[in-house]
Computed example of a mutant assay.
Amino acid sequence: MQNETTRIAFLVAIATLIFLLVPVFLILYIRSYNRHKKNHFLEKQNMQQKFESEILQTRIEVQDQTMQSIAAELHDNVGQLLSLTTLTLNSVNLNDGEKAKKKIDNSLALVNKSIKELRELAKLLHGEQLVENGIGHAIDQEINWLSKAGKYELEVNNQLIDLQITSPDKDLIILRLLQEIINNIIKHAHAKHIQINAYLDKNVLHLKVAEDGIGFDPVEMKGKKTGMGLNSIYKRMEMINGKLVLNSAPEEGTSLTIEIPYP
């Protein structure tokens, strides 16, 4: 009988302990859950702030690239056209009517060409509006500026011109990525031919740029902190959950393929 009483007392003690411990564990679980929830919120908020900061930095870089393009265009193209117009008009001899008319006509043609170039510059000044018009138009504008250099044979397949959907933040980053790639080609590649393909397939935007320049060792270059801006490109690809495929070898050219969930 005493053993039975002891066993019952023991079971009651165990039940009481469990009854007391369950609320404690429940409180600890709730506190732990709330702490994780708070940390998750702070982490998410921090990621959002980093994303917004990167978008702002990208916008500044796009604007800076725009200003550089405008400065180069004013100096190399519009400035030369206006100087040539001035020289032509200064050489007009009104006593020779036929030659004077021909030179004035040539001057008018130069002025009209200058006006056309200035209109193109005006479009470039509205860089953000260009992105708002769609990534296809932004890519097309960059290709137009590249073609004006007259240094490369361009093969372009831009299927994004008539794209009906947009993603302004992603479009801005994609535009900046293309600018960085083109700048790398101009500065380092010594290429003669550039191929650019852009299209959308199954909600994934594909952008491929290939050139026949001197190439490089991707493994060696990726290890360098400042190598050709590749770290910046990889960083921005991660930010928008994109995928970058880089193929290159010395003396065999380079190809970069970008795949981004879109929109």
Rank of each mutant, 00 (worst) to 15 (best):
E98Q: 10
A100H: 05
E73R: 06
F51E: 05
I60G: 05
Q80V: 03
E73I: 04
E54R: 15
I104K: 05
S53M: 09
L121F: 00
M67P: 01
K101A: 06
S107M: 11
I70Y: 00
L125E: 13
R119C: 00
N93T: 09
K50E: 15
L108C: 04
E120R: 11
K103D: 03
L110T: 00
Q65R: 06
I60E: 11
N93Y: 07
K99Q: 15
D76F: 04
L108D: 03
D76W: 04
R59H: 08
Q49P: 00
A109K: 09
L124A: 05
L74M: 08
V78Y: 02
N112W: 00
F41N: 10
H126L: 07
I55S: 04
Q129S: 10
K102I: 09
L81Y: 02
Q57L: 15
Q65E: 07
Q63R: 12
T66S: 05
D96P: 12
R119A: 01
L74K: 02
A109G: 04
D76Q: 06
N46S: 14
L84T: 06
T66Y: 02
N93W: 07
G97F: 15
L89S: 01
T85Q: 13
T85V: 02
N90G: 04
S53F: 09
Q63E: 10
K101Q: 13
A122R: 13
D64L: 08
Q65D: 10
L87W: 10
Q57T: 12
E73L: 06
Q49Y: 14
A72F: 12
I104V: 09
E61G: 01
H40L: 09
L56Y: 14
I55E: 08
N112K: 00
K101M: 11
S114P: 01
D76L: 04
L125A: 12
L94S: 05
K50G: 05
G97Y: 15
I104W: 12
A122E: 11
T86R: 11
N39R: 12
E128P: 00
G127N: 10
Q57M: 13
K44R: 11
H40T: 08
L89G: 00
A72W: 10
K116Y: 01
Q129V: 00
F41Q: 14
K99W: 05
A71Y: 03
S69A: 13
G79E: 02
I60Q: 13
N106Y: 09
F51D: 01
H75L: 07
K44F: 12
Q49W: 10
V62H: 09
N112L: 01
N106F: 11
